[in-house]
C-alpha cells in the first residue's frame, strides 16, 4: 500500500429535483426564483401537481387564485402532491 485516504472533503450543489428546467408559468428556471422573488432558494420552491407537472409555488398559487382550478399544462384538475 502506497497511499491511504485520511480525510475527504467534497462539495456538491443542490438543485430542485424537477424534470423540466423552467417553470411553465413564468418561464424562469426552477433553480432561479419566480418573477416576484429576489433570492432563489427555500423561499421560492417548486410544487408538483397530481398530473406530475411542476411550477413555482408562487406562480401556481397566483393561477389558482384567479379561479382556475386546472393545471395550466394539461387542464386536468389541479391537486397538490407532497413528495416524501
Amino acid at each position: 500500500m502506497k497511499v491511504t485516504i485520511r480525510k475527504w472533503q467534497t462539495v456538491s450543489s443542490w438543485h430542485w429535483d424537477v424534470s423540466e428546467e423552467c417553470c411553465g408559468i413564468c418561464r424562469m428556471q426552477f433553480d432561479a426564483c419566480c418573477v416576484d422573488c429576489k433570492m432563489p432558494g427555500d423561499d421560492c420552491p417548486p410544487v408538483w401537481g397530481a398530473c406530475k407537472h411542476a411550477f413555482h409555488m408562487h406562480c401556481i398559487l397566483k393561477w389558482l387564485n384567479s379561479n382556475q382550478q386546472q393545471c395550466p399544462m394539461c387542464r386536468s384538475n389541479w391537486e397538490f402532491v407532497t413528495t416524501d
Partner: peptide, 25 residues
C-alpha cells in the same frame, strides 16, 4: 441522508472542488 432531510432536491457532486488528506508511505 440529505434527501431524507430535503426531499425534492438532488445533489450534483462538484469533483473539481473536492480535496483529500492522504497518507503516503
Amino acid at each position: 441522508f440529505y434527501s431524507s432531510k430535503y426531499p425534492n432536491r438532488k445533489l450534483i457532486w462538484q469533483n473539481s472542488l473536492g480535496q483529500c488528506v492522504l497518507k503516503c508511505f
